[in-house]
C-alpha cells in the first residue's frame, strides 16, 4: 500500500479546497441561509408542522443532503477531470499508485470536504431554527456514506466526461433535479398517490428519508431500506470505478 501517495493526493486535493475556500464553503452556506429565509420564514408560517416537527426544522436534513449531494459530485468530478484536461494525469498513471489508492485519495478528499460542508450547514441552520438530533451516530453515518457515495459518482463523472459541458450537465440535469424532487422540502406523504409511487424510483428519497429519521425518528420509508439503498448505490459506484481502472477506460491508450 502506497500510503505516501494517498496522503499526497488527499492533501493536494484539500489544498485546492483551501485555495478556493470562499466558493467552496461560503456559497453553499449562503444559499442555505437563503432557503431558510425563503422557505422557513416566508412559507413555513403556513405549515404548522410536518410529521410533528416544525417546517423549518423539517427542512434542515433535506437541505444538508441536497448540498452534500451536489457538492460531492461537482467536487470529486472536478478533482479528477482537471488533471485529465490539463494532461498532468500522466504523472498519476506513471506512479506506483494503485487504482484503490487513487480512489481513496481523490474520493476521500472530496468526501471530507462534503462532511465539513454538511456540518457547516447544520451549524448555520441552527442560527435559524431549533432542531434536535435523535440518533447522532446514524446521522454521521448517513452523512459520511452519502458523501462517499456521491463523491464516487463524481469521480466516475470526471473520468467519463470529455468536455466541460458534460461535466456541468450531469449535476445540473440529473443530480440537482433528483435532489430537489427527493423530498428535501416536503414529505412524500404530502404527494398524490401516483407521484408517491414515481418518487420511490428516486434514490435520493431514501437518503433524505434516512437522514431525516436520524434527526427526528420519523421517516417516509423504513430506515433499513434507506440504509440498504445507500449501500447499494455505494456498491454500484465502487463496481464502476473498479471496472474503469481494470480496463483503463478513458485513462490509457
Amino acid at each position: 500500500m502506497n500510503l505516501h501517495a494517498i496522503k499526497a493526493i488527499y492533501i493536494f486535493e484539500l489544498a485546492r479546497t483551501w485555495r478556493t475556500l470562499f466558493q467552496s464553503i461560503a456559497g453553499p452556506v449562503i444559499s442555505t441561509s437563503l432557503y431558510f429565509i425563503v422557505f422557513g420564514a416566508a412559507i413555513g408560517g403556513r405549515f404548522a408542522s410536518v410529521e410533528g416537527v416544525s417546517y423549518g426544522a423539517f427542512l434542515v436534513p433535506g437541505l444538508v443532503m441536497m448540498s452534500v449531494l451536489t457538492e460531492s459530485v461537482s467536487n470529486a468530478s472536478f478533482g479528477i477531470y482537471m488533471p485529465r484536461y490539463s494532461g498532468t494525469i500522466y504523472e498519476l498513471l506513471s506512479a506506483p499508485v494503485s487504482a484503490f489508492e487513487t480512489v481513496i485519495g481523490y474520493v476521500g478528499a472530496a468526501a471530507t470536504k462534503s462532511v465539513i460542508l454538511g456540518t457547516l450547514i447544520l451549524l448555520t441552520a441552527r442560527l435559524f431554527v431549533d432542531f434536535s438530533i435523535a440518533h447522532p451516530f446514524w446521522m454521521i453515518a448517513f452523512l459520511m456514506l452519502t458523501s462517499v457515495t456521491f463523491s464516487l459518482l463524481g469521480f466516475i463523472l470526471g473520468i467519463w466526461a470529455d468536455g466541460w459541458e458534460k461535466l456541468q450537465i450531469v449535476p445540473m440535469l440529473i443530480v440537482t433535479p433528483l435532489a430537489f424532487l427527493g423530498g428535501s422540502f416536503y414529505s412524500i406523504s404530502m404527494l398524490p398517490p401516483f407521484w408517491q409511487k414515481i418518487t420511490l424510483f428516486n434514490p435520493v428519497v431514501y437518503l433524505v428519508s434516512g437522514f431525516r429519521w436520524s434527526f427526528y425518528g420519523a421517516a417516509d420509508v423504513p430506515v433499513a431500506l434507506s440504509l440498504a439503498i445507500t449501500g447499494l448505490l455505494l456498491m454500484i459506484c465502487l463496481a464502476v470505478v473498479w471496472w474503469i481502472f481494470r480496463t483503463g477506460y478513458k485513462l490509457k491508450n
Partner: peptide, 11 residues
C-alpha cells in the same frame, strides 16, 4: 507544493 506532491505520489 507540486514537486512535493510528486515525491509523495512515488511513495
Amino acid at each position: 507544493a507540486t514537486v512535493s506532491f510528486s515525491r509523495g505520489l512515488f511513495g
